[in-house]
Simulated assay, not measured.
Amino acid sequence: MSEQVIDLKKRRFLTNATSVVGAVGVGFVLVPFLSSWMPSARAKAAGAPIDVNITKLEPGQLVRVLWRKKPVWIFRRDAQALANLKTLDGDLADPNSTGNSKTNQPTYITENHRAIKAEIAVIVGICTHLGCSPTYRPELGAADLGGDSWKGGFYCPCHGSKFDLAGRVYSGVPAPTNLVIPPYHFVSDSLIQIGVDPTTSAS
């Protein structure tokens, strides 16, 4: 009688232990299977759109975000900065982005401010020469960048390329083309989505 009780206890123990080990084994199989349904970090970095809230973006202020592993600048230009853009055509290599720079911007970007909304610029912050990241130099008349002729823009410290506040390249510098404008659209007045072409967006 006592032997049967002991055997039943052993049997229950072995049954429970087997169940636990089986459940753990199923978990090890199931976790990678379920995680395979989720997009990897690499897939997200490859092109997933990002949303940027610009509610608090002040005139002259620039914010940097990362999209497709590239820095993207978003900044607000005031009325003076926009007016200055129209005076720079003679200093620029391709002021209307009609030459080699044409492929560096979406087809819906047509004006010399190179933006959907004139006051909000969205530009990939990578120099078109050798891929350095230019510095933001919004101050007017910077002595080291041309004095009175400098109306604000970007300066690449690697090899001296200069760009205006629309990302248009100056003449006589190493960079061959204007900075790239990524695909983007306004979800609302205060929210920009980078990585989505508005001509194909359902928004």
Score class of each variant (00 low, 15 high):
residue 4 Q to Y: 14
residue 6 I to A: 15
residue 6 I to T: 15
residue 7 D to N: 13
residue 9 K to A: 13
residue 9 K to M: 12
residue 10 K to V: 09
residue 15 T to I: 15
residue 15 T to F: 11
residue 15 T to N: 11
residue 17 A to G: 15
residue 21 V to H: 05
residue 23 A to S: 15
residue 24 V to M: 08
residue 27 G to E: 05
residue 29 V to C: 02
residue 31 V to H: 00
residue 32 P to L: 01
residue 32 P to K: 00
residue 38 M to H: 11
residue 39 P to Y: 07
residue 40 S to N: 09
residue 40 S to V: 12
residue 42 R to H: 14
residue 43 A to S: 12
residue 43 A to P: 04
residue 48 A to R: 00
residue 49 P to H: 02
residue 51 D to A: 11
residue 54 I to E: 12
residue 54 I to F: 08
residue 55 T to G: 02
residue 59 P to V: 08
residue 60 G to R: 03
residue 64 R to W: 06
residue 69 K to N: 07
residue 70 K to I: 00
residue 75 F to M: 06
residue 76 R to W: 11
residue 78 D to P: 10
residue 83 A to H: 11
residue 86 K to S: 13
residue 87 T to G: 03
residue 89 D to Q: 10
residue 90 G to R: 00
residue 94 D to W: 10
residue 94 D to F: 08
residue 95 P to E: 08
residue 96 N to R: 12
residue 96 N to Y: 15
residue 98 T to Y: 03
residue 100 N to I: 13
residue 100 N to M: 13
residue 100 N to Q: 14
residue 101 S to D: 10
residue 104 N to S: 13
residue 105 Q to T: 02
residue 110 T to C: 03
residue 112 N to R: 09
residue 113 H to G: 01
residue 113 H to Y: 13
residue 114 R to C: 10
residue 116 I to L: 08
residue 118 A to P: 00
residue 119 E to H: 10
residue 121 A to L: 05
residue 122 V to S: 04
residue 122 V to M: 06
residue 125 G to Q: 10
residue 128 T to Y: 01
residue 128 T to I: 02
residue 128 T to L: 01
residue 129 H to T: 05
residue 131 G to R: 06
residue 132 C to E: 05
residue 132 C to D: 11
residue 133 S to V: 05
residue 135 T to P: 00
residue 136 Y to N: 05
residue 138 P to Q: 04
residue 140 L to G: 08
residue 140 L to N: 11
residue 140 L to F: 11
residue 141 G to I: 04
residue 141 G to N: 12
residue 142 A to V: 13
residue 143 A to W: 09
residue 143 A to M: 03
residue 144 D to M: 03
residue 145 L to R: 06
residue 148 D to Y: 03
residue 150 W to T: 04
residue 150 W to R: 04
residue 152 G to V: 05
residue 155 Y to L: 09
residue 155 Y to G: 07
residue 158 C to F: 03
residue 160 G to A: 06
residue 164 D to W: 01
residue 166 A to G: 15
residue 168 R to F: 08
residue 169 V to R: 06
residue 170 Y to A: 10
residue 170 Y to G: 05
residue 171 S to R: 11
residue 172 G to P: 08
residue 173 V to M: 09
residue 177 T to L: 12
residue 179 L to F: 12
residue 182 P to Y: 09
residue 185 H to F: 13
residue 186 F to H: 02
residue 187 V to L: 07
residue 187 V to M: 00
residue 188 S to I: 01
residue 189 D to L: 01
residue 190 S to E: 09
residue 190 S to H: 03
residue 194 I to D: 14
residue 195 G to R: 04
residue 195 G to S: 06
residue 197 D to C: 01
residue 198 P to M: 04
residue 198 P to R: 02
residue 199 T to I: 07
residue 202 A to Q: 12
